[in-house]
Design a protein around this nucleic acid. Structure first.
Length: 945
RNA sequence: GCCCAGAUGGUGGAAUGGUAGACACGAAGGACUUAAAAUCCUUUGGCCAGUAAUGGCUGUGCGGGUUCGAGUCCCGCUCCGGGCACCA
């Protein structure tokens, strides 16, 4: 029988489906394992070969775990909300739900071909009301919570209300937008709206007026991770800073836990580092500076408290509220002009220009240690959003302060022994501190840092600051709260209405609040988000929401929130929903959650490092605090698959003609390279007929060939439709089969690495499968498996293979496993091994990689059950042992002769043998042995004096 | 500027401190074939010597070091990729 992949794969696809082999249920009797691939956004272009890379790797692992006896959960779904479908809707009027639905069907078709062991009964779609009900639910829970720093967790807002009623803000240690201070009495006299406004300052999901990234082209605000280099990630449109009232998530409250959690999870160092950078923890101190001649103090943040004696000026951010307060009348005009100027410069200019600019406020601060007067300046190199928006400038030890001091001729005072600040600042945090003022000249208690290392000096200063009430030790984070509103249509609607201008949560029993139909997907005439176009908009599947005897669906009395949630909302807890996707009563049943716990292996792209992977961790920690998720970190192990790039092919048209010249001869002509569809090129050789048929303008193309062939040029580029280099998995499955595609994608190289797709290598994997198949059949095509005792060699080959593949599994170095399979099959072919025992185990080993052909072979071997229920074989070292080993013996590194010893010979045995060897005596003539090094089974080295 | 990860044949890539280049592609040669495809076999890091079997030298970005022995460990560079960035 010949290996017919099409027939086999068709047969088993139907059988798997019929027998529901991938259905997973909770089973207390078996250990669980949760494998998850990041769910895709179903784009119109369909899957290319890059997409399944991670899925295949995850699937292999899932199948391996199952063969090892684990109860494996491996679901799949769709991240269905997103901008492309909406942009498409704006252009064509096609409802995004429809486009999304079509794209999903296409994705499903493609995914089904490749033979994944997904339990499709657990499929989720973020745009499905049964799903986003729980996204809305989680949002409401965040609205109704605050973050307590003392107990390090989220708490219900009622607790805070109670606290305000009894103690006001006294001794409060919780996450907040700004520091408020009031007594219990104050609280009680506040109106309800005032109380709501106060609570907004503490809620984890809160409505805040903040600087946001506004993208005019997309008509929406964007989160920090959606903006790179001043333009939107999607579309590359310019983004400006704008103050707007928006829903935000107080993710900054979780900064420390997000940081600490990284040490408990098995993720690549680079992605952890990316998250650490993004969180940006910096330990320092806040210090108060008094303003000269006034009873007014302002606070600065510094990580270099030790440099207090080198402060020669202060700088305020232009946007800082302090600027107005700290501008002397005579400088008012100059400061205002400067601030106007900075406003006009966009974020991008500020980054690109890096021109030193600033203006003096006319006022002076008092150095709390020395009493010195320090001029206060305003400059845009200080950011309003970080720290306190004000700094103490130490030009000797900070390059930005240095540039500023040089530009404006301000003094520079070095504080580190032996440093040279004549050309540049000394930013290093190493060295011995000097130049503290002489005792007596110092304003405070003869405080001196001289002779200390910088590290010790920082600590000493911090201690001093705290003791003398000059300031306090403070940790700052770069991580900002996530802006949670988008002025778009295709997203989860907020379950929020407004009463007296204050947001109210739609009653939980009315969830989900469905996304309304709109007449058009653009903003309304009055500039409201697209949801403003809806006429009937607050409707619920269950019942109408009535408040104060008025239907909430009443625009004028209870306006609804018109923004929708961002893309990351739906993807933040989907792994929990997979555990219990049809549950109507809870996001996930407690018992079910206890069983599946968290994702054991998560596979996806590293581009989500500062987006989804942070939001999801935050979201899960919040749910953990609420007792919904039972594990604090949602993804225990993360593997980032690399990107697959495209390998484009080119033809070379001679300018002004319809004549194409082969790659090797192109230098003899004046040519234009043109991208050519890689599907009509095989092994870089162009199919001339297919090319003529490809496009009408090439119908009568002429060719200049080399060796009778047209050879195309090539280049590695991003895989994209416009470069005609998209390798389509369907086509490969058709030609070679899904098993070959799976093997080849893994064989390409380590999965974590980015690499170009090279169609040319795929034959090798196809050949391997055919050879493997042929092990089971004789020349006449009859099944030729025998029950004879296996030969020693074939067992050795087998156990070598089991060992290698099992070891590779944990590391997911599947490329070397595939190589091991190839070697084993080669060896068995040579050994003429047809032994059932050996070949059966081989089939089990190969199953995760090539499930179709293995099912077929397993059946041909006479099994009634499916190979997925087989047992992963274990290896026996005994078969791998050699009887004897040949060891090269070298003198001072040069090989002289070899000896043969037993495989498990001890070192001293080998040594004795070497010494007894007659050639040893000859070499040693007149020399002394310094040392004999025996490397077991490898080499013997004798060092001579 | 700071942080992280990497650099091995024509190509993708293998190598618990122990025979570098597994495996695959590509290339060259051969077998079968009218021919082609398919399949199979041989060779394939570089240089040198030899008719040949073979032997020698050299070789993992560059320069040092540790070691009997380094692609692997340490120090210093160069280059490429990724992250952060007037974050005080």
């Amino acid at each position: 029988m010949e290996y017919q992949h099409t027939k086999i794969e068709k047969k088993w696809r139907a059988l798997w489906d019929e027998k529901k082999v991938y259905r997973t249920t909770e089973d207390e009797g078996r250990p669980k394992y949760y494998v998850l691939s990041m769910f895709p956004y179903p784009s119109g272009a369909g899957l290319h070969v890059g997409h399944p890379l991670g899925y295949i790797a995850a699937d292999i692992y899932a199948r391996y775990k199952r063969l090892q006896g684990y109860n494996v959960l491996q679901p799949m779904g769709y991240d269905a909300y997103g901008l492309p479908a909406e942009q498409y809707a704006i252009q064509t009027g096609q409802h995004p739900a429809l486009t999304t639905e079509q794209n999903i069907s296409r994705y499903r078709e493609q995914l089904d071909l490749i033979g994944f062991s997904f339990d499709w009964e657990r499929e989720v779609r973020t745009c499905d009301p049964g799903y986003y009900k729980w996204t809305q639910w989680a949002f409401q829970k965040m609205f109704n919570s605050f973050y307590c720093y003392s107990c390090q967790k989220a708490q219900p807002i009622e607790k805070l209300v109670h606290r305000f009623e009894t103690k006001g803000t006294e001794g409060l240690n919780i996450a907040q937008s700004e520091e408020l201070s009031f007594t219990a009495e104050d609280w009680k006299t506040m109106s309800e709206v005032e109380q709501q406004q106060v609570l907004m300052n503490y809620r984890i999901a809160y409505l805040g007026e903040t600087m946001v990234n506004w993208c005019a082209e997309l008509g929406t605000v964007l989160a920090n991770d959606e903006v790179v280099d001043g333009v939107s990630v999607r579309g590359g449109y310019p983004v400006v800073q704008k103050k707007m009232k928006q829903w935000c998530l107080r993710i900054s409250a979780y900064a420390q836990r997000l940081l600490e959690g990284l040490d408990t999870i098995d993720w690549s160092e680079s992605i952890k580092e990316t998250q650490r950078n993004w969180i940006g923890r910096s330990e320092g101190a806040e210090m108060q500076f008094r303003v000269k001649g006034e009873d007014f103090e302002f606070t600065i943040f510094t990580t270099r408290a030790d440099t207090i004696f080198g402060v020669t000026f202060m700088v305020l951010a232009p946007e800082s509220e302090l600027v107005e307060r700290l501008t002397a009348p005579e400088q008012k005009a100059a400061v205002e002009t400067y601030i106007e100027e900075t406003k006009r410069r966009t974020e991008l200019d500020r980054m690109a220009g890096k021109k030193v600019s600033g203006v003096f406020t006319g006022k002076y601060a008092i150095n709390p240690f020395t009493g010195e007067e320090i001029p206060i300046w305003v400059s845009d190199y200080v950011l309003a959003g970080y720290g306190t928006g004000a700094i103490m400038a130490v030009p000797a030890h900070d390059s930005r302060d240095y540039a500023f001091a040089r530009h404006f001729g301000l003094p520079i005072v070095p504080l580190v022994e032996g440093c040279d600040v004549s050309q540049e600042s000394f930013d290093a945090k190493e060295g011995i501190v000097t130049n503290s003022p002489q005792a007596g000249k110092t304003a405070l208690h003869g405080f001196s840092l001289n002779g200390l290392s910088i590290k010790d000096a920082i600590q000493k200063t911090k201690d001093f600051i705290a003791e003398h009430d000059i300031g306090r030790v403070k940790v700052n984070y770069r991580l900002r709260d996530a802006i949670f509103s988008r002025q778009r249509y295709w997203g989860e609607p907020f379950p929020v209405y407004y009463k007296d201008g204050m947001p109210q949560m739609i009653p939980q029993e009315c969830l989900p609040l469905l996304l309304p139909e709109v007449s058009k997907f653009l903003p309304t005439a009055t500039g409201e988000p697209p949801l403003g176009n809806a006429t009937r908009w607050a409707w619920s599947v269950k019942e109408k929401c009535v408040v104060d005897n008025v239907l909430i669906d009443h625009k004028d009395v209870f306006p609804l929130e018109l923004s929708t949630m961002p893309g990351f909302a739906g993807s933040s807890a989907y792994y929990l929903r997979y555990m219990d996707p049809r549950n109507n009563k809870a996001l996930v049943d407690e018992k079910v959650d206890k069983y599946w716990q968290a994702v054991d292996l998560y596979v996806g792209g590293s581009e989500h490092a500062t987006g989804h992977l942070i939001y999801s961790r935050f979201w899960n920690k919040f749910l953990f605090d609420c007792g919904v998720s039972c594990v604090e970190e949602p993804f225990q192990r993360l593997v980032n698959q690399g990107m697959i790039q495209g390998r484009s092919n080119f033809v070379y048209r001679i300018k002004g003609t319809n004549k194409f010249v082969s790659h090797g001869l192109k230098d003899d002509y004046d040519v234009t390279p043109i991208h050519v569809d890689i599907n009509i090129v095989h092994a870089d050789v162009l199919d001339l007929e297919a090319f003529r048929a490809w496009r009408p303008e090439y119908a009568d193309a002429e060719f200049v060939l080399e060796d009778g062939k047209y050879v195309c040029g090539w280049a590695i580029e991003k895989m994209s439709k416009s470069m005609f280099n998209v390798a389509n998995p369907d086509k490969i499955v058709e030609k070679y089969g899904a098993d070959t595609l799976r093997l080849y994608e893994m064989f390409l190289g380590p999965i974590t690495q980015s690499k170009p797709w090279d169609q040319n290598g795929i034959d090798g994997c196809y050949r391997f499968l055919r050879r493997a198949w042929n092990l089971f059949f004789d020349k006449q095509g009859q099944l030729a498996v025998t029950d004879d005792a296996p030969s020693k060699e074939s067992l050795k080959t087998l156990h070598k293979l089991i060992k290698k593949v099992t070891e590779d599994m944990e590391e997911m170095s599947y490329n070397t496993s595939v190589a091991a399979f190839m070697i084993a099959v080669g060896e068995w072919a040579q050994q003429k091994c047809r032994n059932r025992e050996v070949l059966e185990k081989f089939v089990v080993l190969l199953t995760p990689f090539a499930p179709y052909v293995c099912c077929e072979l397993w059946q041909l071997l006479g099994h009634d059950d499916i190979v997925f229920d087989a047992q992963w074989p274990t290896f026996d070292e005994a078969y791998l042992k050699e009887d004897s080993v040949t060891l090269p013996v070298s003198f001072n590194g040069k090989t002289r002769f070899t000896i043969e010893v037993g495989a498990d010979a001890a070192n001293d045995e080998v040594e004795k043998m070497v010494l007894a060897h007659e050639q040893t005596a000859r070499y040693l003539d007149g020399k002394t042995i310094l040392k004999i090094i025996v490397v077991p089974k490898r080499i013997v080295n004798i060092v001579l004096k």
